[in-house]
Design a protein around this nucleic acid. Structure first.
Lengths: 128, 128
DNA sequence: GGTGAAAAACAGCACTC
DNA sequence: GAGTGCTGTTTTTCACC
């Protein structure tokens, strides 16, 4: 289990030979200057009932960009969304229950863009 | 600042009207069954000196798949790696210092696959 | 699920170098 | 600016209901 963001200052301090207070000071600084943007969790989407994870690249139709942005913000299936360069201009990571759910999701997307879907087969984990 | 994974059991308990101990029990259960896979942090790559973030899709050359996997695990620039379906079979998220760094990185990849690069312009944040 | 008490971790601050 | 120790407070842990 990756425990990065819940490791105590004391434990971090042991690894880098620093007192807990100092570790705390350094981390607070990293938070203040914005290097650490936040703390999050990795959730197993399969166990959450989302048996399909996909990347969807979207080529937004001319003039539909603003629509796309606000639509994207309203879909709970979307885990991450990025604006990118290339053939398509939006990159989504999406968690879905099953094929039907994917179909329905794509049907909503094609109102404002042309989607290209890639199924995620597995994560090639880098075990740090 | 997103504080999801460092919110105290007490604070979570207040929101769902449960005692800190019960919140802890529930979370422990989620960890035990694997719903919560780990705890992580969001790091601002720009502030880390990586001014270029890209997605790279790789079409691995025939017979080079195992080479690709072990190479991928050895590159610190790679933040995430997935096996996917579609024209390309590997999807990478990579953080790089600058254009030169990207060029050198791509030069290494083309030993075992054909890369397609998409620059990440911005994250379209969903503010939960 | 809840309670309560001990142990651990944390935040804040004064101090040193 | 960076590190540390001290102190009061909060959180976590754990045995038990």
């Amino acid at each position: 289990m990756k425990y990065y963001s819940r490791t105590s200052f004391a434990d971090i301090g042991k690894k880098i030979f620093l007192s807990p207070s100092s570790v705390r000071e350094r981390i607070k600084k990293l938070e203040d200057v914005g290097v650490i943007r936040g703390y999050s969790l990795d959730v197993d989407q399969n166990l959450m009932g989302n048996n399909l994870e996909v990347f969807i690249m979207l080529k937004i139709f001319t003039g539909k960009f603003n629509t796309a942005i606000s639509e994207i913000n309203s879909y709970p299936e979307i885990q991450e969304a990025f604006r990118i360069t290339g053939q398509q201009n939006i990159h989504l990571r999406v968690a879905l229950k099953n094929q039907l759910h994917l179909q329905q999701f794509i049907d909503k997307l094609i109102a404002f863009g042309e989607p290209t879907t890639h199924l995620i087969l597995s994560e090639l984990r880098k075990d740090f």
